[in-house]
Nucleic acid binder design. Structure first.
Lengths: 132, 132
DNA sequence: ATAAAACCTATTGACACAGTAGGTAAATGA
DNA sequence: TCATTTACCTACTGTGTCAATAGGTTTTAT
């Protein structure tokens, strides 16, 4: 299940893409109003987007946030993966370091791997520009 | 993320399929040992499988559980959906009765719908017999 | 009667999710 | 210089789910 962190993050990115007039900064207050999401909560989410180098922000009057790349240069997958920690459907695959003792005899592992690939491919093929 | 409830349920079903010699009942104790899962926890899960008419159980000596259909007549999707409540990736689609006020203008909804269909199709095409 | 099994109710610890609260720092413009 | 606007920062909290555990009762075959 994709949480609000991931979903709101994408909506913020879309909002930034749509309201960009060439390098202007967009205040979070405006985004929160348009998207009907608590500004306080969005602060946490946008902070994480800044952290992941998806957007940049400047303080002070006239400040706000803006994208760092063109919308076509973002994949939905990289955004979701950053916000959610992992896109993996099962615990045994989400943690890359985890070495399941049953993996040799596990009858379900191949299915989870196949599923994981399906999900990964779907979201990494999807560009931010596809959502505008 | 698919929880242990769903994943263990599938492993139980596989175990029942593999250890079936024509209508015999398999005690949960054996399944728990083979699968290396706490029997107590499995009780909850198997109860839910009984509830959903995936397996049947009889009490008493010589009792246990068995499948109600041939392995090829179960889809992984129906098992997971029953155990997890819903396969939907996002809250706005998981609850069928929920009518999102933003659905007309939501730029992400089409993507979630597309994703949901992908997931649904994947798991409903997958049969229990494919996992043996 | 006894043993083996399912079946039932209740409880728990840990954790994540979805926020809220209240502040500090930076930048601009009047 | 000072007020305003904005991002940025730390901490807290209620709610719920997950993953079990505990301790029983009932059913059935031998």
């Amino acid at each position: 299940m994709i949480s609000t962190r991931g979903r709101y993050a994408i909506r913020v990115m879309i909002d930034l893409a749509e309201n960009d007039n060439g390098g202007n900064y967009i205040p979070l207050k405006d985004i929160a109003e348009r998207q009907e999401i608590s500004k306080k909560y969005l602060e946490i989410i946008v902070k994480d987007l800044v952290n992941g180098n998806f957007v940049t922000g400047v303080s002070g009057k006239g400040g706000g946030y803006k994208l760092l790349r063109a919308p076509k240069d973002y994949t939905v997958g990289e955004i979701l993966e950053h916000m959610e920690g992992s896109l993996s459907s099962v615990a045994c695959l989400a943690d890359k370091k985890y070495n399941c003792p049953r993996k040799r005899k596990c009858h379900t592992l191949p299915m989870w791997k196949e599923y994981d690939k399906l999900v990964h491919d779907f979201f990494y093929k999807k560009k931010l520009s596809d959502l505008l």
